[in-house]
Design a protein around this nucleic acid. Structure first.
Lengths: 201, 201
DNA sequence: ATTCAACCTGCGGTTTACCACAGGTTGAGT
DNA sequence: ACTCAACCTGTGGTAAACCGCAGGTTGAAT
């Protein structure tokens, strides 16, 4: 329904053409086999595959199309993480469609883009980028732990899956708590789900 | 963005007119003060107020307009809960817009409506409604506990807020686990968030 | 070669979540 | 008066999450 809506809105812009749509990550990959895209709009909350996983596979198998993540949330820790994984843009769903159209053009011209009206831009200029990353951005290992936690696994199970000790999972979780400022497991899960780490949402 | 999309799609149907839109629950209530609506489309995942809370207040203060809940998920336990709280329709976002339009007409004519292609309809006919409810549908107390849990509160905190013993919170949680078939706290939180119980998603 | 960050781990110990057992209240319906 | 469902609560115990302390590895950059 969301897809139908966005597509019908994008059709109002004569400079853009929608060459395909997909209900989930694996459909997307199939579509890209037959058609070439300049820009891919990737919803973070998807069924079948998580946004993170889809992005990873997408960048590996189809390096050409540029990617804009579309999300309900806008957390610096998460936004930066998606850029590190190869995204070129990040747009919260709260934006007007005009902003989205602008972003599509910008990203198509080899630019990067995230909603500039936000605090992140300011922070990236003020403090050194590195310091910011070490303080707020989740490492890929941490994202992995968070993802598995969001999918209902216990620390022990996560440790088993990643072939690390339960203690190490706790260690990563502690760091996630520090970086995100969250305090309870409930908050952690809620945070993860809203940011697109979840089995089949 | 989602709203803009839906509205542009609904405009294609000459029998419908969109008389207003709102970004969250309290905006909705303000809008209804000045304009009368036949049907309200209420997204379950909203900022500021949860879907449940908005529905409750809406039904109290504006009993006339009929309400269709729009959600990513479709869990019998939750769907039935929303009907009990006064909703008249329930549409998953995965549906085509045609289904939504159909639903709007149906609900406007004083009918109730949920996606008939689903298992729920079958179940409601087969087993007695009462048995179904006792087995699957969350009571209002249980929903309240789940909501507070999704907002990051511990059992102790929840007990404090609802003025009941911590033990009683555990009791309700156990029942939620039984009714939903979930097993871990992570699953529980994920379930709640996806179904519109969450602080400001 | 050294430094540094990210990763990994073990040993306690505390807190929180959960569960089995056992029971009390209250209000609506027969 | 009785039933029944939903609600509430205590005791005591297990498992899971979390935390401080203390330390080891590895790979990339200076």
């Amino acid at each position: 329904m969301f897809r139908q809506g966005i597509i019908s809105l994008l059709k109002f812009d004569p400079g853009l053409s929608v060459i395909g749509e997909a209900a989930n990550g694996s459909e997307l990959l199939k579509t890209l086999n037959s058609r070439q895209a300049d820009v891919v709009l990737l919803d973070i909350q998807m069924p079948v595959m998580t946004g993170t996983q889809t992005l990873e596979v997408l960048r590996q198998r189809f390096p050409d199309p540029r990617v804009i993540m579309v999300s309900m949330e806008f957390n610096p820790s998460i936004v930066a993480m998606y850029f590190e994984k190869g995204a070129h843009g990040f747009i919260p769903k709260g934006c007007d469609v005009e902003v989205l159209v602008e972003a599509i053009y910008k990203v198509k011209e080899n630019g990067n883009c995230y909603d500039l009206s936000t605090e992140l831009a300011a922070r990236l200029n003020k403090h050194s980028l590195e310091n910011f990353e070490n303080t707020y951005v989740l490492s890929s290992r941490e994202v992995e732990v968070l993802r598995l936690a969001c999918q209902g696994n216990s620390n022990k199970q996560i440790g088993h899956m990643l072939r690390i000790a339960e203690r190490t999972v706790e260690f990563h979780k502690t760091n996630i708590y520090l970086k995100t400022g969250l305090k309870s497991l409930s908050d952690l899960i809620a945070y993860g789900i809203k940011n697109g780490l979840g089995s089949c949402n």
